[in-house]
Design a protein around this nucleic acid. Structure first.
Lengths: 195, 195
DNA sequence: GGTGTTCTAGATCGTACGATCTAGAATGGC
DNA sequence: GCCATTCTAGATCGTACGATCTAGAACACC
């Protein structure tokens, strides 16, 4: 055929992801991206299309390697422990997040989804995926008695999703552990107190 | 003295607020602002300083006329009713929000606060203000037995703040009433079930 | 080893931005 | 009525943006 790429697509896509994650879509220029990815802008356009398309690919990569991985790993645990660990990991990530990048899903939900139908769909699908995980936890926890049965499981799932998103917003401006853990402890305590 | 202003400062500030609220800081150009405010850009700079300063004034105006007003109005109610009404009003606003503007506090928390110390302080102060309102509700509700005493009031306040922020994020991409009400019903149900 | 294709680096395109300047109109104090 | 001051509209400044183009280097195929 012809001359092969000189860079590894996955490596530079992760560099782009970190760029967009930390700075958002608008605040990241193509020049920033090219520099951080270590390639020329022509190569960037060649390999990933325009800036929006690169963001989409970086975003999908993020979702696959954070949200999906976490859910796959945690759904083997017992219901309450799965939820507890989910929040513990999020809080740990948030406290360690010195760049204040927050969660790229939440960032995309606020910056792009309201104006861009394609990103809206991506974000909604992912939120429904997380909600479904919480619902499965709630259902099996109610079955074995470890989770309060006073509210239907699908309501509890929506509550847990809201708390998760809220913690991610809080963490972006007030990343103190006590704040985030307070919210998580309260919802987990209330969930379990019906046992 | 000299020639007086031809526009009403409050009126044009509200126009600027609506602009920033719907489009965010970066996505709103000074030309957009001048057009929507009905004044020339020179007048804008004259009266409000630069773009960032105008945003700050619009944001402070927003906080005073939404968050502060709501808290002042609702803290006369009984604890659980105050919390319930708070969420009901937020949900109503979110469902009616055809422009998907969401909450300007949450928008600022994600767009500006992570990079701008002045806005971080404004956002943190406002979140602490809301949290304090929820804590007062939780404390007096626990005293009169209407709110579960199984978790400390300050944890419950942090939980309610998280759910509030989470609902605002959800509403920006998935503004269906059932989703938002599910989360609110769950947390209110769990809060009250200890009575 | 020639040929065609795809890569790279860097210059460059048109556009939109935030901010300022110019010129002149409008007003209050005297 | 005059002057100092502050207003208005619109042109314009320099800069940064996303995207593309130009030139040439590097490789696979035959």
């Amino acid at each position: 055929m012809a001359r092969p790429r000189e860079f590894d697509e996955k490596t530079v896509l992760e560099a782009a992801m970190n760029c967009f994650w930390a700075q958002g879509f608008e605040q990241t220029s193509v020049r920033d991206l090219a520099e951080r990815m270590g390639i020329a802008s022509a190569s960037l356009y060649n390999a990933f299309g325009d800036k929006r398309s690169l963001y989409r690919q970086a975003f999908v990569h993020y979702l696959a390697h954070t949200v999906r991985d976490r859910v796959a790993r945690l759904q083997k645990l017992r219901p309450l422990a799965a939820i507890r660990t989910f929040f513990d990991e999020i809080i740990e990530r948030s406290v360690d997040d010195e760049q204040r990048r927050g969660c790229m899903l939440v960032n995309a939900a606020l910056e792009l989804a309201p104006y861009d139908p394609e990103f809206q769909q991506l974000v909604v699908e992912e939120m429904i995926f997380i909600e479904a995980f919480f619902r499965r936890c709630a259902e099996s926890g109610q079955k074995d008695g470890s989770i309060a049965g006073s509210r239907p499981a699908d309501e509890l799932a929506k509550l847990l999703l809201s708390v998760l998103l809220g913690i991610r917003v809080l963490a972006r401006t007030r990343p103190q552990r006590e704040v985030l853990e307070g919210a998580a402890n309260a919802v987990l305590g209330l969930l379990g107190s019906g046992a």
